[in-house]
Design a binder for these strands. Sequence first.
DNA 1: AGACAGGGGAGTG
DNA 2: CACTCCCCTGTC
Length: 285
Amino acid sequence: MGKIKVKDFNLAHTLECGQIFRINRVNSWYFVNAQDKFFKIKQIRNEIEFHGVDKDFVVHFFSLNENLPEIFKEINKDKYIEKSIGKYRGLRLIKQEPWECLISFICSSASNIPRIKSKLKALSERFGKKITLDEVRDYTFPLPGKMNDYEKILDAKTGFRARYILEANNTVDIKHLNSLRTQPYNLAKNELKKINGVGDKVADCILLFALGFNQAFPVDTWIKKTMQLLYFDNNSVSNDRIREFGLDHFGTYAGYAQQYLFMYSRNDLGTSDRLAKWKTGAPGI
DNA sequence: AGACAGGGGAGTG
DNA sequence: CACTCCCCTGTC
């Protein structure tokens, strides 16, 4: 076990903003599965306590060495992002393993968080290794090559994504994924998009959540709606333009801005009506 | 209860 | 670009 004093960190926001999906809250503890790790962690004010992993892992995994106030200085360009930061301060980008991240976001297409969770849980139960913590049994995430049974993948409720998962399992090399970290953004992204089931949005998620590209700006339906309203006078704009604007407007930490805007528009507004009021400045929004 | 869309992507025209 | 289909379940 270990304890760390933390600054500018909010465990709940960080775990529940949809970056990772194999998490389970039990009272004040979060049980977290990440690739072959299984640990629990809780936060009380400015202290986190964890079991099952060491301090170095926790610091790296939760990006605790990144200077969040400096990042805020860079991305805080207008009143909308300021409001979002005010509400979700302490949300940090997690450093995931790229393989699990890849499969997670292939699973995310045309889906929602509860369903993504159920698919990843089912996949790890079918193909992963047993692992226990405090007599709680769970499973590691299967490495490439282990998910070699199409029917079992389908049985994990993956639907039309099953063939993408099987193909990725048969062709993707973890070393190759990791080698993308040092490539230029566009090159790394094109490489990821060669994988079937990976388009612009999924590629940006992998770049941002696993490969260290903080400028990646994933454009999903919610962020699209939000950005069009706030920055394009509610005109319909292509995903490419939104992504280019995001990077141009927020800078090298655009990915952080995306997460904060996403959380605020989705969790606190949640409907197009309330979203529209954000722009016009209704009280309380 | 029944319709509907969900943090997309590939294939086609 | 603008469609359509792909599975299927949480949600209203």
